[in-house]
Design a protein around this nucleic acid. Structure first.
Lengths: 361, 361
DNA sequence: CTGTTAGCGCTTTCAC
DNA sequence: GTGAAAGCGCTAACAG
């Protein structure tokens, strides 16, 4: 009575093409042909059946690595992200993985932690691994050169964080339009005095959001309060810090605030709360990204939806297209504005809402 | 004046070991030795320098695929997840990726979408790709056989969703203890009448949470209301459905509810709100997982923290250990109970909280 | 239709 | 210390 104590991974069971060939009484190359749907018509049906049979019986599993060495391709896409802990990137990976899997490709993922040296290492490593293409999510400006040099060897697609002036294909969202839509919404609600909580402006997304927002404000003669500072990173604590500056240092507070992303908006929400300011009663607040749970905050956050999943899917499609030898266009996806309850017509009475109430007037 | 219209990926630039050898006037095997830190002592320092020099100048990049074919290993770990869209799995991947990268390994990710046939395909594919190890996050009971059969070839580690009775190594969290801690917390607050919103009981996690919770209730003579139904999937809408049953069908409502995960708790929160029941004023609510934003809900959710990141890290360590030929122990990580504001001493006055207020009495 | 012959780029004996 | 040769498992070109 055998007792299995643990796994042993006895290497002996590697069945090769030759094993199948010997067992089926044919040459290895015949087996190779018989098992490849693209060439199996070159093999007599009866032997083909016999080979498939033997292969199944022996538990033959193709050794892709050998195939790769021969073909020079690996059916693998390398995805480089700054930080997997950022809930923003996951849907993009999800989208990419989903759209390349139809082509039998898998994604391999590595994190740069926003470190330039690590970025270089990772890209080098991926090229050594002979990935067929690279997707860079959240590349920084310093990484551009490395990416373009990799782009001379295999297709490289930039996702989410746009690069200015590059030959690389990009799939991004229209941040300018996103900033504009936030401003337009506030203008429509009658706001005449607003402020932005700016993300780091060396990230093109934030610079563009700021630009779109300001442009619309200017066009409508809306006063924009300049904080003269920006978040060092687009995170909750920095949103708090900027909002504190706003509350402490500004004489006449704005009636509406546009945070460059939801995390900063959450920070703002918390500071406003501590300062006794009601959202949206005293100040309206708009975020950016539409993270999974911001619709459940109190109040549910009005925000610009970043279509991460779609970005990922389109990236996957672009990769496949490039791999097929066709060129591809840059893709710019328009954002959607999501109106929830953190914004309100300026000066309107502060009505108490009843949860689950029907459609208001 | 040349204008670059697009990327061209001219394959010609693949520098091989032989190219370096020729250029350096030595044999390929010497280059191989010189470039491998583990064997470079076998090469005269001067030639070693020359080789490194030439390699750098030519832009030589090792062809890992060839190395893999030779060595039989790929420095790759396959991670199989049910759904990348589930925010719960990301930190686990994050953790795994982080702890294996020190060994120069990368993770490749594939989604099963909780489909058994897909699961089989993916595992087959990964074995064909010759991954060195497989990590299964959220495997289902039907997948066990496939996993164990793969486990005879390479190390397979089960993460997060435990399997009963298996030779495979597991890294999970102690769900029984998690259920117990929820019950203990409620008992301490004086609750005598409680209910569970159960997740699907073919997932061991939920069955165990239920068990721990009930055990403590019984020990303290606390009444547990049985809904006689469970969520079909552990998601918001199912949390709503079960809570509606509770509100509609039960004569005397419980004073506290234990939702088997945060998503269901969020569903409950919404139904309680619509029914005019205040949390925690009228009913206390405990969730499970401590998803990123539940601390920002209104009220901030009391919950059991699931240490996803740590689970991932430990999984990575176990993988490395197994790969090194050592056996490894199963790892069971104790949960942490996070008290926030969705639970309250039963019958205590419904005091209005001021956001950001100091430490209460 | 099927077998033979060469490699893909690298590591690994075994000589010298 | 270094070179020569063999081979990892597979596919591709060429015969027959």
């Amino acid at each position: 009575m055998a007792v299995i104590v643990s796994q042993d991974h006895s290497k002996k069971d590697t069945v090769t093409l030759h094993d199948v060939a010997r067992e089926a009484g044919v040459h290895a190359s015949t087996v190779s042909r018989a098992l490849d749907p693209a060439r199996d018509f070159k093999v007599k049906e009866s032997t083909r059946q016999r080979i498939i049979d033997v292969a199944g019986r022996l538990g033959y599993r193709p050794h892709m690595v050998a195939r790769w060495l021969q073909s020079g391709r690996t059916a693998t896409v390398g995805i480089v992200v700054a930080d997997l802990g950022n809930t923003f990137v996951t849907p993009i990976i999800h989208g990419v993985a989903g759209s390349i899997e139809g082509a039998g490709m898998l994604a391999i993922v590595a994190e740069t932690l926003d470190d330039h040296a690590r970025f270089k290492n990772i890209l080098d490593h991926m090229l050594s691994r002979r990935v067929d293409a690279v997707v860079a999510i959240s590349a920084r400006a310093d990484d551009q050169e490395i990416l373009e040099s990799a782009g001379r060897i295999i297709p490289v697609v930039i996702a989410a964080r746009p690069l200015d002036e590059t030959v690389l294909r990009q799939v991004v969202q229209d941040d300018v339009m996103g900033g504009e839509s936030a401003a337009e919404h506030l203008v429509e609600l009658g706001h005449r005095r607003v402020a932005q909580l700016r993300g780091p402006d060396d990230v093109a997304n934030f610079a563009r959001r700021a630009m779109g927002f300001s442009r619309v404000c200017r066009a409508h003669g809306v006063d924009e309060i300049e904080l003269g500072d920006q978040a060092r990173r687009p995170i909750i604590s920095e949103g708090k810090r900027l909002t504190e500056q706003l509350v402490d240092r500004v004489d006449e507070l704005p009636t509406a605030v546009f945070a460059h992303n939801d995390l900063m908006a959450i920070g703002a929400l918390s500071v406003f709360g501590s300062a006794g300011l009601r959202v949206p009663g005293d100040v309206s607040l708009v975020g950016y990204n539409d993270l999974p749970m911001v619709g459940l905050l109190s109040p549910p956050l009005t925000t610009v939806r970043y279509p991460s999943l779609e970005v990922g899917q389109r990236v996957g499609e672009v990769v496949l297209q490039l791999l097929a030898g066709h060129d591809a266009e840059d893709i710019i996806i328009p954002p959607t504005f999501v109106v929830r309850e953190s914004t309100r017509r300026v000066g309107s009475a502060s009505l108490t809402r009843v949860a689950g109430a029907g459609p208001g007037s």
